[in-house]
């Protein structure tokens, strides 16, 4: 997997994480177990999990996942997320 920085006014460190195709379902299962089931937005065909320090949002295909950090988000929060996503620098 890899990530790409995307421009977003909400936080300068905004990335899209591109999951390996066969990891999409299991990754969302891990994220849901940690922060709750995703909510679907049918009109935009998106799904998201709102965690306290960031929002994880994707199209209904679940990939890539855009991570929108809140300002309070710490390095430890990001490290925890990366572990769940299976992302290493």
């Amino acid at each position: 997997m890899h990530r790409e920085k995307v421009p977003a006014c909400v936080h300068p460190e905004t990335y899209k994480y591109f999951l390996d195709r066969d990891a999409v379902i299991s990754t969302w299962q891990r994220l849901a177990a940690r922060w709750g089931e995703p909510r679907h937005n049918p009109s935009f065909r998106t799904m998201e999990i709102a965690a306290p320090r960031f929002t994880l949002r994707a199209t209904v295909l679940g990939n890539p996942i855009t991570v929108l950090r809140r300002r309070e988000c710490t390095a430890a929060d990001v490290a925890e997320l990366h572990a769940l996503l299976g992302y290493g620098e």
Binding site: V6, F44, T46, A58, T59, V60, T66
Partner: peptide
């Protein structure tokens, strides 16, 4: 234009 909402709809 880089948001998931844009990608989805």
């Amino acid at each position: 234009m880089h948001s998931p909402e844009w990608d989805g709809l």
